[in-house]
Amino acid sequence: MDNIKDIKKPVAIIDTNTDFEVRSLDAMCVNAATVAEPKWHIIKYFIMGILFGIILIKAEVISWFRIQEMFRLQSFHMFGVIGSAVVVGMISVFLIKKFNIKTIYGEKIVLEDKKFNKGQIYGGLIFGFGWALTGACPGPLFAQIGYGSTIVIVTLFSAIAGTWVYGLFREKLPH
């Protein structure tokens, strides 16, 4: 009888973790901060979004024409933007790990490793097709709408629909 109790306990623990498990399904959505931060602090992400939107537009990376130039190798601009962003990001992550830099709440900064699956190949190619067609990846979609291109709202809803259809057929797709 004691054995049965022992088996039941871990099952209950897994159940409470389900939410985290589902969110982490594609290794992209587990940005959980465990230290409780005051609720209104969440506004900082809104402000960061504003800055990000301004940068995206001023860098012209949201321009359909710049994307076409990139995929035709007619301009260095996009490669320069993405390349230098990656270099700065790499140095930052290196420094964070090296000096064990904490969050402003004193929490350890955790970076999940991404697991390889074939979705990164198939999905990557499909996204590439969409990127060259619309001239926008998800971030620029939002920026273009804010900039006043109302037609992009249709593109955004299509993208949400695409994500939904992926969720619907996820189990049947090769990964």
Binding site: M28, I126, S158, I160, V165
Partner: peptide, 23 residues
Amino acid sequence: MIVFGGFLVGFGTRYAGGCTSGH
């Protein structure tokens, strides 16, 4: 370009597990 393109962006990024920013 508007509707189908957007669909590919949404479907592809989730299938790949991220987009230009995340990956």
